[in-house]
């Protein structure tokens, strides 16, 4: 197990390094650095450019150095928790983001939880009642869930809420808590408001999970040991839970690797559409104004969320399934 843990940790760190290089390249992609655009913009408006500030920023980011040095400078800052400097807001990134990172994590985590909690009973039901009306209905629903892109679903819900209740549902907490320090009341309010975005983001993931669990469980149920068990007179509930369900559960847990990037992607765009106070809308704004350091920090954060999530789920899976930790191989 320790061996597996070490190897998995190493791969995770390597992945993160590659990702950081990738994100850095993306930050550097727009022609010219942000400062030159900034100066040009100010000058076109006939404003004086504060030479000292420019010089300060140039040094802060080592924009006069080679790209490789700049990269190490940037990464060193990241590791120490210095997320960089937002040019648009003229503030350090860490001050701009506030508790958005935390809310993003809460949102994504709740969505994953929602997907598992909802898809598990439905998947088991569909498999044990194959070709029943309930199964057909749920399959159809699942297909629709898979085909409706989540940001369109968010738009539809916003529209319906606007017509029926005349209110906007695009918020993560009641107004009185915005900008307030965390308290029980605020946490509860966030939980209440989470429901709609979680359902919107989780729909397609849930549909996919149901299909997968159903297929896995059906495969298991057709095996001979199940027939043997039934012939020996095991009660149906025990016959289902004791072995087939446990076998079908492994791929179900392992699939978080496919699901996590999808959920994070979904949460970004749904947050942008519903203007939730998570990283989504801010990432979008940063990208639109080519405030690349802010955007880069968000990208790194989102990637970190996925990679660490997958790492944890892999450890969980290894604890569940001795085959994985003994062979030491990566899953998939």
């Amino acid at each position: 197990m320790l061996n597996y843990f070490a190897r998995r940790l190493l791969t995770m760190i390597l992945t993160l390094v590659v990702i950081s290089v990738l994100v850095f390249v993306i930050i550097q992609l727009p022609p010219g650095d942000y400062l030159s655009t900034y100066i040009a913009e100010l000058e076109s408006q006939g404003e004086m450019v504060d030479k000292d500030k420019i010089e300060f920023l140039r040094q802060q980011y080592g924009l006069d150095k080679t790209p490789v040095e700049q990269y190490f400078h940037w990464v060193a800052g990241l590791v120490q928790g210095d997320l960089g400097y937002s040019f648009e807001h003229s503030l350090p990134v860490s001050e701009v983001v506030g508790d958005r990172l935390l809310l993003s994590m809460v949102l994504n985590f709740s969505t994953i939880l929602f997907i598992y909690i909802v898809s598990f009973p439905i998947g088991v039901y569909s498999a044990t009642h194959q070709y029943s009306w309930g199964d057909h209905g749920l399959t159809l629903l699942g297909f629709l869930g898979l085909a409706t892109p989540n940001f369109l679903l968010a738009l539809i819900l916003l529209y319906l809420a606007n017509i029926w209740f005349g209110t906007s549902i695009g918020a993560l907490m009641s107004d009185e808590y915005i900008g307030q320090p965390w308290s029980w009341g605020k946490a509860l309010s966030v939980l209440e408001h989470l429901a709609v975005p979680v359902i919107v983001i989780g729909t397609s993931g849930t549909a996919g999970m149901i299909r997968r669990l159903r297929a896995n469980l059906l495969d298991e149920l057709q095996k001979q040991y199940v027939t043997t068990g039934r012939a020996k007179g095991l009660p149906p509930g025990r016959l289902l839970v004791k072995y087939p369900l446990r076998m079908a559960l492994n791929p179900f847990v392992a699939d978080i690797g496919n699901m996590l990037p999808q959920v994070v992607s979904g949460s970004v765009i749904v947050s942008a559409v519903m203007s939730l106070p998570t990283t989504g809308p801010m990432l979008l704004r940063a990208l639109q104004s080519q405030d690349m350091f802010l955007a880069g920090s968000f990208l790194i954060f989102l990637a970190l969320l996925t990679v660490v999530g997958m790492f944890l789920s892999d450890l969980l899976l290894a604890a569940l399934d001795p085959r994985i930790r003994l062979s030491g191989g990566m899953r998939r």
């Binding site: 992945t15 990738l22 992609l29 639109q288 990208l299």
Partner: peptide, 24 residues
């Protein structure tokens, strides 16, 4: 294999957003 692993562990949409924002 490694490249594929890295690419698949990344959330696609934010990356797409960043790349298309970087278009001149």
């Amino acid at each position: 294999q490694r490249v594929i692993e890295v690419l698949r562990s990344l959330p696609e949409l934010p990356l797409w957003m960043a790349l298309s924002a970087a278009l001149p």
